[in-house]
């Protein structure tokens, strides 16, 4: 079984076609870098994979499931198994680091209970179960931030806050993580740190990692394969060992 199979995927808004006829397959545990210039359609592609954006045409199978056929409940369940990390980190600013990590576990509560308010215990760290709190501290330990557990999220540095977002994604015990320019807002040193931590965590846990980046060196270093999008079309999909940096730079012309 493959982690992702995308067939003839297209997405258009009114008269503008963002993605055109994209097909690719990603194996379980692989790490894929998606590159392409601004507006090429990288983010839209990622959003289609969790149906935050609805594709116009084509099919997407994730771990064998045809997710475009999912209704609300199944969709939410599918999303709870996919971690998403954003360029803007998207932590809740006024809440503690620990609470933000525990938020990653809300989806699981809904998976085990049909009660619509099932998620309520994980709205804050105060009410979360002991097990969840321990798990969250463990997740923070994995990104080496457990000492900041009760600090407010808006007091963190950029690198720290993105590591918290990664911990939140890990909290979901995902089999796949999608990351949209995860280190674009960080300085080069923090960016390298976060990226290699991210890569190692995913490799160790056999999590399929798909990330977009403008940094071609990152793409080659942390992606087993590189997928390039140009004007909404798939223009390159290759093993990163067989790619030269110049080829990738050419994708930005």
């Amino acid at each position: 079984m493959n982690a992702i199979e995308v067939n003839h995927l297209s997405k258009s808004y009114a008269d503008f076609e963002v993605l055109r006829d994209i097909s690719f397959t990603i194996g379980v545990g692989e790490s894929i870098a998606i590159i392409g210039s601004n507006g090429a359609g990288k983010s839209t592609l990622l959003k289609c994979l969790t149906r935050i954006t609805e594709p116009s045409q084509g099919s997407i199978n994730i771990f064998g499931d045809p997710i475009l056929k999912f209704r609300t409940g199944a969709l939410r369940r599918m999303r709870s198994s996919i971690g998403v990390v954003f360029q803007k980190h998207n932590l809740v600013p006024r809440l503690s680091v620990l609470t933000n990590v525990i938020h990653g576990d809300i989806g699981r509560l809904h998976n085990v209970s049909k009660f619509p308010l099932a998620g309520i215990r994980n709205w804050g760290q105060i009410s979360a179960s002991n097990r969840t709190r321990k798990k969250a501290m463990e997740a923070l330990e994995m990104v080496s931030l457990s000492h900041l557990a009760l600090q407010r999220a808006d007091t963190l540095s950029g690198g720290q806050s993105q590591r918290v977002a990664i911990a939140r994604a890990l909290m979901q015990e995902p089999n796949m993580i999608l990351a949209d320019e995860p280190v674009a807002s960080l300085d080069p040193v923090a960016a390298n740190e976060v990226m290699s931590l991210f890569y190692d965590l995913c490799k160790n846990k056999n999590i399929t990692l798909i990330f977009t980046s403008h940094n071609v060196e990152h793409a080659l270093e942390y992606g087993n394969k590189v997928l390039a999008i140009k004007n909404g079309r798939l223009s390159l999909f290759k093993d990163s060992n067989s790619i030269e940096i110049k080829t990738l730079q050419a994708e930005y012309d």
Binding site: T50, I52, V84, G107, H110, G119
Partner: peptide, 11 residues
Amino acid sequence: ALESCGATKLD
């Protein structure tokens, strides 16, 4: 972000 990882609108 929370919704994209399986939380409901209410959450």
